[in-house]
């Protein structure tokens, strides 16, 4: 039958971040963490991590403080919705691009 390499002729890839492209560019709102409200930050121990658990894109780290990988975060806002202490706020991306412009 000969060797075939049809996997290169389909959408076929190995697991890893970025398989669906740099989805961070889709975001219109960015999650921002207020550490004074975040349970693991306040107690300085591994606790809660509801944001990490609920993130459908697996872009929140299980660390103190939890970190958002903005390369891939689509800005869906599920973390902000689920956070029991309302420590996460969704902020319009325009705000950050204006900040960047001001610096320039």
């Amino acid at each position: 039958m000969g060797t075939r390499n049809y996997r290169r002729k389909t959408s076929h890839s190995e697991h890893g971040p970025g398989d669906g492209g740099r989805t961070g560019s889709w975001r219109v709102e960015r999650p921002v963490l207020d550490q004074s409200l975040c349970i693991p930050c306040k107690r300085n121990k591994e606790a809660c991590f509801i944001c990490w658990l609920y993130c459908p894109e697996i872009v929140i780290s299980r660390t103190i403080p939890p970190q958002f990988n903005l390369e891939y975060c689509k800005g869906c806002g599920i973390c902000a919705e689920e956070c029991p202490t309302k420590a996460i706020t969704m902020v319009d991306e325009a705000h950050f691009s204006e900040q960047k412009k001001d610096k320039e």
Binding site: S11, E14, P17, G20
Partner: peptide
């Protein structure tokens, strides 16, 4: 050429964007 195999996991027919892109490798 490739068969689903837990030891060699892969994403099949995942989303493609309008343009070409750099894969995970």
């Amino acid at each position: 050429d490739y068969a689903l195999n837990p030891d060699e996991p892969a994403n099949l027919n995942t989303v493609t964007l309008p343009d070409v892109r750099i894969d995970t490798k």
